[in-house]
Structure formats: structure tokens, C-alpha cells
Write a protein that binds this DNA or RNA. Sequence first.
DNA 1: CATCATTTTCCAATATAAAGGAAATCCTGC
DNA 2: GCAGGATTTCCTTTATATTGGAAAATGATG
Lengths: 186, 186
Amino acid sequence: MPDEAPPLGPHIQQIRKRRKLTLEQLASLSGVSRSMLSQIERGQTNPTFATLWNLTRALNIDISELVGGQTSNRAQTIDVVGGHFVPEIRSEDGLCTLRILSPAQSAGRTEWYEIRLAPGGALVSDPHAKGAVEHVTVIEGELEVVSGEIRACVPAQGVARYAADLPHALRNVSDTETRAFLVVAS
Amino acid sequence: MPDEAPPLGPHIQQIRKRRKLTLEQLASLSGVSRSMLSQIERGQTNPTFATLWNLTRALNIDISELVGGQTSNRAQTIDVVGGHFVPEIRSEDGLCTLRILSPAQSAGRTEWYEIRLAPGGALVSDPHAKGAVEHVTVIEGELEVVSGEIRACVPAQGVARYAADLPHALRNVSDTETRAFLVVAS
DNA sequence: CATCATTTTCCAATATAAAGGAAATCCTGC
DNA sequence: GCAGGATTTCCTTTATATTGGAAAATGATG
């Protein structure tokens, strides 16, 4: 049963345009010729695995992302959620509060949170998906970051980025409440 | 920079043998010829995307499973950026400050910012890439959101989501400084 | 060890993916 | 509207992915 492969051209084009790359630029980045890129984007050819691989490396995306997204055109709305209705998770000791700011449907891709840590509070996490990276921005207070074997201190207004595909934690080592903004990118 | 594609032949063969399938059987399941399968498994050819796709369908696996363990491996570090070194953009009237929190290499994909708006200040943006959505979270103060033809008000701690592929703006209509987090998802 | 059945690899023919240069198209700024 | 450059698409050539059938290898049975 030969099956119809999904169209990945439009998706690739979308990624390329979002990054403001020309065919020429992507060609030299990936080692795939412009002509080939043009044909792939328009679904006029059936690229080779090596070609796709080089593309994913140049765009720094995972192969599976190529077959994923279909663009959906939603209705024109502004979705406002009152502060008290934002999903919130509190740790058992009550010292850590996590407000889930990213929409439910983006779960698994990029997610973002506001964290509130009382003095001594911590957010300890198991490894996320392979390749996941966390970006934390301290709004106020101070934060200690632990990722795997290593740790670092982030002052107010500072930003830290670290691997999240291994055990990691955020800890408030100061004596005031710490607020931070956390983005988990997969 | 053409890159070396990872060997996926041995992995495919492993899956096939585990399921006790002959090349013949897998061929008829997938619509890929036995000869081709044999060559793929021994890395003597560079299969087409359609071929791989049909294989994944026949074996009921995800395409990313074929490249098993070949995801990008970064060094184990924590990247800390002091608050004063985070890239910052100020509007001409000085009423709007934008701190770029997302890493440079994610430009064009998901980007995030901290916004500070003095009373009366505004962040007015041209349309981003098609399909782009913005998610704003008010840290303190209050915000008016305009997306295309429509507008909405977001209170402190509230969240708003709206299309960003048309002209849009954030405006501080209160009389105190407003801080917010803005995530642009493409 | 010989034989047959099964499975895999080799081979020649064909279809088509890939690259590079030429034509066409799309944009800006006059 | 008309240049000029930048960008994309088309065209031709070359390299190779894909296939079906033949040959080789494997493996079970007596």
C-alpha cells in the first residue's frame, strides 16, 4: 500500500520566511541548491533523506517538525483571561506558585510560566523532552539555577538559559519573594 | 556546509527483525521494493522522503524514531546574562522600553520580551509573519490591546492572546507604569 | 553432504532528484 | 510607470534512487 507522503513544502517555506532567509541563503547554509529548495517548497519534488537532513540541520529543527504543523486560520479575536482565572499550581509546602501563561494547545511545544517563590522555596523538575531548554528571567528577587551537575545565580532582571532535558531546579536563596518568568522551549 | 546524514539503515533493520518481518513482507506492507529496503538497510542509498514516509507508516513509527539518538547534543552549561546586558530597545518618546529576553538564535520562531510602558506609552507593531500570535501577561499596571479592528483591556495579572499577523498595539491607558511579558509565537 | 525453500543481494533499465545557469518575476526607489 | 537589483522559477544536464528479475546466500531436512 503505497501511501501519500504529507506535504512539507509549505511548512518549510513558512519557516524560511519567518527567519527572513532567501532561497540563496538557506541554500548556502544547508548545502542544498536553491532550485531544489524552490521545488521542495512547492511540492514539485520528493526530496532525499540526506537533503531533508541537511535542511533540518541548517534550520536547527527536528525532522519530525517537518511533517507536523498545518497552518490554521482562526477567527479574529482577542482572548482575555482575568488574573484569577489563569491556571495555577502550588507546591505542597506552599512556597512555590506556578501560573501557566501559555495556552493549553501549545502544551509540549513552547510553554511559559510565571513563578513565585517564597524565601527558601524551590521548583524542582524532572527532565523534560530531549533537547528542551529553559529560559528564566528574574522579575524581582534572586534565583539559583541548578541544571544537572552545575549551578548558577541569577540576579534581579537577569536572564539564564540552561538544558532542561535533565534534572533541574530553581531555588529562591534570598530572603524576599522572588518572581520570575520561565519559558520552556522544546 | 553539506552535512553527513545519520545512518538509519541498521536501525530500520533492527526494527524489522524484531518484528520478524522479511524484506518481502515489509515491501508489500510499505510499497517499497525489497531491493530498495535491502539497500536502505545497508546504507547503500539515500532514500527519498516518500520512501521513508511509507516505511514509517508500515512500521507504525514516528519519523523521528528513524534518526534515533541523533538529536543535537549541546554542552552542559548555564548561560547567565546580567540584567544590564539584556538587549533593550526604547521608543523615540521614551515611554516604551522593550527588553529582548529570547535568545538571538530563536529570532523568527518564538520570541519573548519584557515591556515597560510609562503612562500614555504604547508599543505599536506592524504585522508579523502570517499566523503569528501574541500572548501578553500583565505583571503590574493595566494594558489596552488592539489587534486589527478590535480592542480589549487586560488588568494586572491578566493574560491576552491575539492575532499578530495584522497591525496591533499595546497601550498603557492607566496612570502608573505598566510592566508585561510578551510572547510572540509564529 | 545434497536439495529445496526462503531470504537476501546483485544487476540492468528506468524514473527522477539534484545542481547550475538562464529566464522570469517581484520589489524598491526614482 | 520605468529602471535596477534581488529573488524566485524554469530548463538542461548529470547523478542516482527505485524497481523487477536473476543470482547468490542462508538454512532447514533427510
